[in-house]
Amino acid sequence: MSGKTAQVLNVLSSVGVAGKDRSADRDVVYVYEMPVRVWHWVNAAAIMVLAITGCFIGTAVPTMPGEASDNFFFGYIRFAHFSAGYVLAVGFLLRIYCAMMGNPHAKQIFYVPIWRRCFWDELWQTIRWYALLAVRSDKCAGHNPAAQLMMFSMFTLTTAFMIVTGFALYAQGSGQESWQFGLFGWIFGVLPNSQDVHTLHHLGLWVIVTFVLIHVYAAIREDIMSRRSISAIISGERDLRD
């Protein structure tokens, strides 16, 4: 009888804490809600398209044979760039909405809590972990402090910058009466020669490329080495193991 009661109590205590009963040291947390996960992959795809077409736009393609009227190759490349740019920009706005409405993890990439002492302590721990000085990583459900810092500076700020400069450059084609120029034309008040805006837009690309390198490496490494699983961005649930 007492054995049964213990079983029931065990089941009851596990309600709402998924998988807590699998083992004493295991823990599963629901980190990324569905809209955030969908945004992540759509955004990744958009960045892929933007980076590749962006490189082509920057350096131009090998000359196409035939008459100009038979070809629109460069035009299509630019079209793909602009379309992906719109997807990225709209996605970014939706992501801000998710941050406001979603769980605390959804807000992480939009700020760095430099005013919290524990952030600096944890950051130091994380740096030790990445420098292979600490043997065990801290348990973080969402981004660890180093990741949050990188996310905010290299991804969020750079993406916002790329959206602003991208639309400003787009406005050069759509004309001074366009809403793009109305919203983003102030860039040319800061940098009168749009060639500088091109240069910075190129540099932004390379910041994003560098970010992707670090991001993908860190995510895979964390999955293998640390006590957190990569699954959070697919299923939303993060396995925190010991």
Partner: peptide
């Protein structure tokens, strides 16, 4: 039109 077509002087 040559720009849009992808036809460039190298």
């Amino acid at each position: 039109s040559h720009f849009d077509a992808g036809q460039f002087v190298e």
